[in-house]
């Protein structure tokens, strides 16, 4: 088990080394990167928005319920929703969801190309396939996912507003007061650090799973599942490590 883990880790590192070398043809890589940005970004906006609005709303309602009958002022709801979104829900939950959507998709795409000998065909042409197929995905994700995370944070804050203000639990002014209170810029930095790290993890782990697929459709399904499961575990692990590192 341990040896196996080390073997896969070694293979993963070697693949990354191969992937991050100088492209043969910048314009082809650029085109592929734009295509990936479109796939990852535009393709995920709706799901990210949907999840974020509910996360914000649920957080607001739950805290309103918990604060009920305590001495903590109600305008704290805005503050809590904001920090929860920035520190945890926007980067982490968004990336967990994206691992399910984008990661499984990447693993299936690469795995399919491997099985249909597309990757071999490119290799024979002289293409560095790890480079051409993986790097544009990683670069695109590193650009687009932090943007999605930003969007998610804003929408979650909007969700908190929608769940509490129109229902009369607090006024718009109170919510806004909470949003402006105790703001720590470093939390935003932390959000971006997390989103870069998680974006890197979910794309590279998923591509790794797909790139080395063998066998048939069952293995392809497994690779796609593994991409999600391993990305999720590693994202949560990294989340914990970053929390310890960045807040100490």
């Amino acid at each position: 088990m341990n040896i196996n883990l080390l073997y896969h880790f070694g293979r993963y590192i070697l693949l990354l080394k191969q992937a991050f070398s100088k492209p043969e043809n910048w314009s082809m890589y650029w085109k592929e990167t734009l295509r990936q940005m479109n796939d990852i970004g535009i393709g995920s906006i709706v799901i990210v928005a949907l999840i974020s609005v509910f996360m914000g709303a649920v957080a607001a309602v739950q805290f309103a319920y918990q604060l009920d009958g305590t001495l903590v002022p109600r305008w704290y709801i805005g503050y809590i929703v904001r920090d929860l979104a920035i520190i945890e829900s926007a980067p982490t939950i968004t990336c967990l969801v994206l691992a399910g959507k984008v990661g499984s998709n990447m693993a299936a795409e690469l795995g399919g190309m491997r099985q249909k000998e597309h990757i071999d065909a490119m290799e024979i042409m002289g293409v560095n396939t790890a480079n051409y197929l993986i790097t544009p995905k990683v670069v695109a994700a590193l650009v687009v996912i932090p943007l999605l995370v930003t969007l998610s944070a804003y929408i979650a804050i909007g969700g908190g507003y929608l769940a509490t203000v129109p229902t009369g639990q607090i006024t718009a002014d109170e919510y806004a007061r909470g949003l402006r209170a105790f703001f720590i810029e470093f939390n935003v930095t932390m959000m971006y650090v997390k989103s870069f790290v998680f974006a890197f993890i979910l794309t590279t782990v998923s591509c790794f799973q797909g790139y080395y697929v063998q066998g048939g459709s069952i293995e392809l399904g497994k690779a796609s599942t593994n991409a999600v499961v391993f990305s999720n575990i590693l994202i949560l692990l990294a989340d914990y490590l970053l929390a310890v590192l960045l807040t100490s």
Partner: peptide
Amino acid sequence: RMQVGMLFQGSALF
């Protein structure tokens, strides 16, 4: 490899 062309068993067209 740039001097190599290959036709695969399953064609391997993209």
